[in-house]
Simulated assay, not measured.
Amino acid sequence: MIDVRYSASPSSVETATSAELRDNFLVPGLFRPGQVHGVYTHDDRLVIGGAVPAEGQLELPAWDVIGTDTHLERRELGVINVGGAGHVLVDGEKFELHHLDGLFVGRGCEVAFEGADAAFYFVSAPAHATYPTTHLSHPEVEPVALGTPSGANERSLYRYAWGQELETSVLQFGVTVIADGSVWNTFPPHLHDRRTEVYLYVDLDEDDRVFHFMGQPGATRHLVMRNREAVISPPWSIHSGAGTGSYAFIWAMGGENNAYTDLSPVALEDL
């Protein structure tokens, strides 16, 4: 099953109801046992999805909206396991993924998911070239330390695919883990004028929430989000949030280029 999301203008967001904001930008319900569920957004034509194999095997679908015989015929893929141990089959080769381990899969491959306790999050983007499939072990990625305890935004940034070391066409993705006692992510906020970014919030307790801020800098809005819910941030929208407890988030981007530092900082006085 796949849902389709259309692009929205900044002015429509300023006057949207909370329900309209959630319908356009919030992505709940990706992780359903025994199913693959996806969302196709016309913002940079990203596909985001969740695969929960349970006791069986699930194949990466070639949904009609993509218009190809296989999902990766003209796309590349990033996968991160947000559940227990499992594995991904790429053209029959098995890649074991533990919690928060990642996998980049190049254009043209066939992909299937297995693992009774696993929950796989994936993002695909159009690709102009083919690059090798690469396993990305979370413990082996050197994190970048960001923020401060006094600013309540101390966090560790794990860059899996970011335009260096691992070559991709346009896809970038990774994980940011918020330190205990901190609440803010991506703060101060910024814009990606040439790229769409998607966040998936993970590892929240059942009763915790993240207040995710979006919109143009001078007209921000917010969404209240649960564990394993995603949010689409168009190029004109900031992305920042604060949680009520410990959490992490998976970030993924696609667009005009894959230079990680291609961003526009937003000053707090402009919010």
Results as ranks from 00 to 15, higher is better:
residue 38 G to L: 12
residue 39 V to H: 02
residue 39 V to C: 08
residue 40 Y to A: 00
residue 41 T to E: 08
residue 43 D to W: 13
residue 44 D to N: 15
residue 46 L to C: 02
residue 49 G to N: 03
residue 49 G to Y: 11
residue 52 V to D: 00
residue 52 V to Q: 01
residue 56 G to M: 04
residue 56 G to L: 06
residue 59 E to H: 04
residue 61 P to E: 08
residue 65 V to K: 05
residue 65 V to P: 05
residue 65 V to T: 09
residue 65 V to L: 09
residue 68 T to W: 04
residue 71 H to N: 08
residue 73 E to S: 12
residue 76 E to V: 12
residue 77 L to K: 08
residue 78 G to P: 08
residue 79 V to N: 02
residue 80 I to W: 04
residue 82 V to D: 01
residue 84 G to L: 05
residue 87 H to Y: 13
residue 90 V to P: 01
residue 90 V to W: 03
residue 92 G to E: 15
residue 93 E to L: 08
residue 96 E to H: 04
residue 97 L to D: 01
residue 98 H to L: 10
residue 112 A to F: 03
residue 112 A to T: 01
residue 113 F to T: 01
residue 113 F to H: 02
residue 113 F to Q: 00
residue 114 E to P: 00
residue 115 G to L: 02
residue 116 A to S: 07
residue 117 D to L: 09
residue 124 S to V: 02
residue 125 A to N: 04
residue 126 P to T: 05
residue 126 P to S: 02
residue 127 A to E: 09
residue 129 A to W: 06
residue 129 A to N: 06
residue 132 P to Q: 14
residue 132 P to E: 07
residue 132 P to V: 03
residue 133 T to S: 15
residue 134 T to V: 12
residue 134 T to E: 14
residue 137 S to A: 15
residue 139 P to E: 05
residue 139 P to W: 14
residue 140 E to P: 00
residue 141 V to E: 03
residue 143 P to K: 09
residue 143 P to C: 07
residue 144 V to M: 08
residue 145 A to L: 14
residue 145 A to T: 12
residue 145 A to N: 07
residue 146 L to H: 06
residue 151 G to Q: 13
residue 159 R to Q: 13
residue 162 W to N: 06
residue 167 E to Q: 14
